[in-house]
Every structure is written in C-alpha cells, then in structure tokens.
C-alpha cells in the first residue's frame, strides 16, 4: 500500500520537471548540456555551503540547542546566497559560451537565445535541488511506516512533495527572471529574486507548521510564474491572441 504514497509523492515532486524535460529539453542536445551543467553549478554551491555548515557545526558546542538552531538558520541563508552567486557565475559562463557558439555558428547568431538558456539553466537548478531535497524522503515513504507516531503531522510526505514541486518551478522562474535582469542590468530584479529565495527557504523553516509554509510558497510561485511569463516575452496580447485563434 505504501507504494501508492511513493508513486504519489514522486509524481507530485518530479511530474512537472519530467514533463518540461520531455517536451522542451530532451530533443535538443545543447539544452541537455546546459541543463546538466546548471545542475552541476548548483551542486557546487551545495558542496561549498555544506562544507561551511559542517565546519560550523563541528566547531560549535553540540549541546547548545539554541546555537545549533541559529547555525541552521545561518546555513540556510548562506546556502541561498551561495546558490545565487553560482547562478550569476553560470550566467557569466553561458554568456561567454554564447559568444563562442555564435562565432562557430553558420548563421552568425547563436543557436540558442539567452532567454532559452535562462529557462534551461533554471530548470537544471530546480531539478537537482528538488532531487536532493526529495530522494531521502522518497526512500522512507516506501514504508512500511509513516510519520506520526510521535505526534508529527501525517501529511509529511505529501507536503514535502508539494514543497519540492514548488522549489523546482521557482528555480526555473527565478532563472528566467534573473538572467533577464542581468541582460538588462536591472539590479533590483536580482535583489528581488535573492530576497524571494531567502523568503521561501526561511518559510520551510516553519515546518511542520505546513499551513504557514505551503500557501505562501505557492503564492510566491504563482507570482513568479506570471513575472517569468512577462519577462520572457509573453504579454496579455499574446494570451488573448492564443485564445482567439483557438476559437
């Protein structure tokens, strides 16, 4: 029976990422490369931040619970900042690569636009961070038991999956908006992205108070989706065009 929970959680957490990969990434080798490299950059940021956090925990007094909680919050903030630094570094790298691609291309323009790269890179960040936050939980969801014997919420698995889904989508949207901000040198955009990332990550610290963490995260996700849509060339006009054509 717990197989149902496993597949349910897996579909929730990775269904959208899977669909996006299948329909927009898989058939283009260049996009696959950018996706994997994006995931690698995120992993590097995780490696560095976990190293710092590990040293901090080892160097501190393990019995001081207040200090340990403070360290956890510091770790979250530090990790978020580091992820954004690596997103920027990846943007710089892709810009350089784009110039190179344009130089060797037949048509004098790059085979992939910066917006497309932004989307693919963001999805790469999202998939790998989702995988890292969900894989261990998924293996425990196979059962036979479920969380709750110590009075914890029984919705632990499904809310974790929903959180992972939101984080994956958010990374994609942040990637799109962030790259757009870098392209147009609108630094406030980057600041907002970093702040929203900080907000979402600190919201997860509220768990297991899921009512307090999940809805705000989904509000942010929807808002980011709209923003990403407009910043990647979408408009109300396009939307209405789509619907009128369809009718």
């Amino acid at each position: 029976m717990t197989v149902a929970v496993f597949f349910g959680c897996a579909f929730i957490a990775f269904g959208p990422a899977f669909a996006l990969f299948i329909f927009t990434i898989a058939r283009d080798p260049l996009r696959v490369i950018i996706l994997i490299a994006g995931a690698f950059f995120w992993l590097l940021s995780l490696l560095l931040s976990s190293l710092v956090w590990f040293i901090a925990v080892k160097a501190s007094n393990a019995d001081d619970t207040k200090l340990q909680k403070g360290l956890l919050i510091f770790g979250v903030v530090f990790s978020v900042l580091l992820q954004e630094v690596f997103r920027f570094a990846y943007y710089r790298l892709l810009r350089k690569a784009n110039e190179g691609l344009a130089a060797i291309s037949d048509e004098e323009t790059s085979p992939i636009s910066v917006r497309q790269m932004a989307y693919v890179a963001g999805l790469g960040f999202g998939i790998i961070s989702g995988a890292f936050s969900m894989i261990n939980i998924l293996s425990d969801s196979l059962g036979p038991g479920t969380v709750g014997i110590f009075g914890d919420s029984q919705y632990y698995f499904i809310t974790s999956a929903l959180m992972t889904l939101a984080i994956t989508l958010l990374h994609t949207f942040w990637g799109v908006v962030f790259f757009e901000g870098c392209e147009k040198s609108r630094w406030w955009v980057i600041v907002v992205v970093v702040c929203l990332h900080l907000l979402v990550s600190s919201l997860s610290l509220m768990n297991p108070l899921y009512e307090g963490s999940l809805p705000p995260v989904y509000v942010v996700t929807v808002g980011m989706a709209v923003w990403a849509f407009f910043s990647s060339g979408g408009s109300i006009n396009n939307l209405s065009q789509l619907f009128t054509r369809k009718i």
């Binding site: 579909f11 929730i12 269904g15 669909a19 996006l20 329909f23 038991g145 014997i149 499904i158």
Partner: peptide, 27 residues
Amino acid sequence: FLVASPQLQMLTLGVGIAVLLVSLLGT
C-alpha cells in the same frame, strides 16, 4: 509505527497522478 490511512494514501497517489497528467498536457 503508524501506517497512513488508505484514504490518505489514495489521496497522495491521486494528487500525484493528477499533477503528472496536468503538467504533461500543460507543457
């Protein structure tokens, strides 16, 4: 240990399948 109720298990699976189908169609 505790075992999730069949309702919750089926709810999780149902939401999962719905999310997967919607995202496949939507994408």
